[in-house]
Amino acid sequence: MQFFRQTGWMIVRQMRNLMREPIWVVMMITQPLIWLLLYGQLFSKVTPLRAGASTYVEFLTPGIVCMNAFFGGMWSGMAMITDLDRHVIDRFLATPASRLAIVLSQVVRAAITAVIQALILLIVGLALGVRVHGGALGWVVVLLASALLAAAFAGISHGLALLLRRPASMIATSNMAGLPLMFLSTILVGTALMPGWIRDISRFNPVNWGVQAARNALVFGGDWGPTGIYLLLLLAATAVTSMFATWCFRSYQQSI
């Protein structure tokens, strides 16, 4: 009980602090739109890219939703670095606050942020003629995929934040890992157009699990079995990475 209360209040803190950074809120809303409008226009004439969707924007929308969630999760550890720099974490560590609660509050913040951004993207998508073929369930799956994707990578990001503890190291690591993971997925192009070796690797890429689930729900409106498995895999990944981040507190505490 105590654990859930602590996690709850820590999440309240996260969301409240987020809302108090107006620039961040503006960024949170505009950045995904820029991706969607830019990529959607850039590749709109390339018919084979649609891979069964009625327009490239429709094909792209679930991809951008997931890319955005994944990047958001990947960068979310910067908040942990700020908390470390301001010694808020040290203060929490000298209280009975559960380390997992501290991590989960950050992970949940990343997930909620991703869901808000996904909703904005979907609504703009509708205006551009995108249809969610999976209906209400389709909406739920797209939002779940974005939440879990953000959460899974937020766990990694917070673990790294506790290990690296410096913004410059975080930026370098996130960039190094982020772009390859993005291009080793079906965010921009469908499986059919991928070289064989990328297709093989993409199966093990959590980013791709999210994209496949979201695209099944939005573009194809079906294939719920594999879609469910993708979501479960992401849930398992979130559990693993959150445990990893919690474990990283040990390393941090050894260093102080």
Binding site: R5, N17, R20, R86, H87, V88, D90, A94, T95
Partner: peptide
Amino acid sequence: SIGYVAQDSGVDWEATGRENLLLQGRIHG
């Protein structure tokens, strides 16, 4: 059983004084 005031301030800058205190109390149940 302890209160710890570290060498470096642990105040959450984005929260008000009251919110800082309320959260600390809630962590302690």
